[in-house]
Design a protein around this nucleic acid. Structure first.
Lengths: 188, 188
DNA sequence: ACAAGAAGATGATGATCATCATCCAAATTG
DNA sequence: CAATTTGGATGATGATCATCATCTTCTTGT
């Protein structure tokens, strides 16, 4: 049955939000279009009324994931950005994040899949990361130095979560997290 | 037709080596058993004479990937290990590595897939990483400090490659590589 | 109010795949 | 050298999936 314009837009948003969770949790290849639609409370049939392809949904879901994170660290001034980033890093480098595939960092959880996907997906991923670098650089001051400092932070955080998730020993995971926190503050 | 004992062992090894390349390059889900067998010069039929399942092959391929890398950094003494690790890091943090999915670092190229796979695969991945941490710690001296230093190196290297591959701008990739090199030497 | 159109449901379709059953020929074994 | 294995080939099988066609029911522009 037909839905009103707002109801349809709501459906569409629900599909994207659901996909953002499921794709991160299990990987896009392991989640079917029907899975997403069912988790969003619909049947598979309506999908192509909203999206041109599964890849198109993935591209949108990726954008949504990054936009969901952005308020946590993006601030207009260096002083505010520095505080926000510190909070974000504290939450990022935590055992909770390791277990939280579903709502965790898309770089740590989806980057390999994005790299292997079509150009549409790759571009949406790359664009989001480039925006994130710029946002984080605000916390690091001005000039090219700030950009490098932002990259340094990001690679430590992403590397730590990827590494920690790959390991099974909980004590080692904690050690990795702790080491990453120290590395971040050692470098400044 | 039946093959001699050595010929069969050679076939098996070729399957593992081929899988190690293909799985890294395209992801295990995107590579079928038939793809691997064909690339190894056989038809799909013989596969289950060698392996219990696709996951069993993936687990073995993962072990093989790590063993292939081990000679590049593992050394018995701290002095030798330090030199070998420096060489390895120089090659690791390079543009060539970014483009070389097929023979690159399995942590940077396959960790998400391993995390999502069955327990057999996860265990083989986790075990290999734990061994690698121990090997790299040799270059960092003794005690728990060495282990942390090894982890710090690893997360920077893995994070840098994951991040660089996710981005499309070549100049930014180079900046990421360069930043990672500096971060490694800043920390020591 | 009515005609046109769109959201979403139901139900194909064609492809791909992991795994299994069989068969064949060469290699072991005794 | 005969009997028996066994590596590998050929060819199902059953499942899953992305995508499409069609139908129904409601919304919306007129």
């Amino acid at each position: 049955m037909r839905k009103s314009k707002e109801a349809a837009a709501e459906s569409r948003a629900r599909i994207v939000a659901t996909a953002a969770r499921l794709f991160r949790a299990h990987g896009p290849q392991a989640v079917s279009v029907a899975d997403v639609m069912e988790a969003a409370g619909m049947t598979h049939g309506g999908f192509y009324k909203h999206f041109a392809s599964k890849d198109a949904l993935l591209a949108e879901a990726i954008t949504a994931m990054f936009e969901e994170k952005r308020p946590m660290f993006a601030r207009p001034t260096a002083a505010e950005a520095e505080v926000a980033l510190a909070d974000y890093a504290a939450e990022y480098l935590s055992m909770g994040h390791i277990g939280n595939l579903e709502a965790g960092c898309p770089i740590a959880g989806l980057s390999l899949d994005a790299q292997r996907a079509g150009p549409e997906v790759r571009r949406s991923f790359a664009g989001a990361i480039e925006g994130m670098v710029a946002d984080i650089a605000v916390a690091k001051g001005t000039g090219p130095e700030a950009r490098s400092a932002a990259l340094r932070d990001m690679m430590i955080m992403v590397g730590a979560i990827v590494l920690a998730r790959s390991v099974e020993d909980r004590a080692l995971q904690e050690r990795i997290i702790e080491t990453a926190r120290e590395a971040r503050s050692d470098i400044g």
